[in-house]
Amino acid sequence: MNIFRFAGDMTHLISIVVLLLKIYATKSCSGISLKTQELYVIVFLARYLDLFTDFISVYNTVMKLVFIGSSLAIVWCMRMHRAVKRTYDKELDTFRHYFLVLGSFVLALLLHEKFTFQEIFWAFSIYLEAVAILPQLVMLQRSGNVDNLTGQYVFFLGAYRAFYILNWIYRFFTEPHFSRWIACLSGLVQTAFYADFFYYYFISWKNNAKLQLPA
């Protein structure tokens, strides 16, 4: 464990806490893409298949349970909670995310570290996570005005993988066998998707103005 990875995990946790806060405090999920949240449930379930077989550390197991539990809770809330589901902007959340699932799975069948069930699903989860934010970013562009909590949620979500890139660079120079090229390349693509969001987020922060994404 290094400081970059720990910072990345904490930033990821903060993004989830901000989203849960928004939904529970405002009893609203307006501006949140249910499709992105559903993709994250698939990402965590596919990635943490080894939850009960490989024990790495208490921290690792606890964080996996938190990520799986929170992503399921968010999807449940947006689909089933009487007050929250009414605020879901279904007509704005139109990205055909099934193609992202299919594409990621096909890519995982072609590009993986080892042709085993667990490794295929691990690579699938890495590729899917890279594109999972797309429905949310498209929805933000459509809805134009972004409320603070939603903006902070997307910001922390983007920042976490940026910390992971620093972690991979650090591990590359400090660990002889380290080679996570699948996660690294996918993480770079993932963070690149946030580039324009980060730019407009920084502009709005600098001008102390509301976050406006050009339609």
Partner: peptide
């Protein structure tokens, strides 16, 4: 080296 066998990152 077994460190490639499992993924120690989240």
């Amino acid at each position: 080296e077994d460190d490639d066998d499992f993924h120690d990152e989240l």
